[in-house]
């Protein structure tokens, strides 16, 4: 069985685990632990500490593994481990959480330095929050033009499929395909 992988990354509470839960064909495997930092407990009760895992089987010989990284910088050793040999990387950002944009910028720069995989930014739209648009987020994150930005709703299967389809297009254009 040949295994290929893509990475779903992004700051704390951006919607990475939800994104994987929405698309995986198996029960997602998560490594959640109770949040202990006061600023994090205000946002959610638990957080990914090692990785999330989902899968899409293509046929009897090929399978796509979807790995979700922890969002916090203190777990960045997992970003390196999971990012190795990834076909592509989706960085999910909560479009209304301005306080996490700086973390997203660091994360994108981290992957730009550590890998040569194509990167896609997915702006996750949470209900009832003010949100930034593509143009604004490009400026804030200082994104080069080879990193596209797409809007998404991590809870909606069609939306998640749209993000992954866009990433596959990028992999064909920029990635390691032979």
């Amino acid at each position: 069985m040949k295994k290929y992988k893509i990475i779903i990354s992004g700051p704390f509470a951006a919607g990475k685990t939800t994104f994987i839960q929405t698309i995986t064909e198996i029960a997602p495997i998560s490594t959640e632990a109770k949040t202990t930092k006061s600023d994090e407990t205000k946002v959610k009760d638990s957080t990914t500490v090692a990785m999330d895992f989902g899968r899409i089987t293509i046929d009897g010989e090929n399978v796509l593994h979807i790995f979700g990284t922890p969002g916090q910088f203190r777990f960045n050793y997992m970003w390196s481990i999971l990012g190795k040999d990834a076909l592509g990387i989706v960085v999910i950002i909560d479009s209304g959480a301005e306080d996490t944009f700086e973390d997203a910028k660091d994360m994108i720069n981290f992957f730009r330095v550590k890998t040569d995989a194509p990167i896609l930014v997915a702006l996750n739209q949470f209900d009832g929050k003010n949100k930034v648009d593509e143009e604004e987020i490009r400026k804030i994150l200082n994104l080069p033009k080879w990193i596209p930005v797409v809007e998404c709703n991590a809870k909606d299967k069609e939306s998640v499929k749209g993000v992954l389809t866009k990433l596959l297009g990028l992999i064909l254009a920029q990635g390691n395909v032979y």
Binding site: L168, L172, N176, V177, Y178
Partner: peptide, 8 residues
């Protein structure tokens, strides 16, 4: 490195 085009 990477994947065959046919896989994508």
């Amino acid at each position: 490195r990477g994947a065959p085009r046919s896989f994508i």
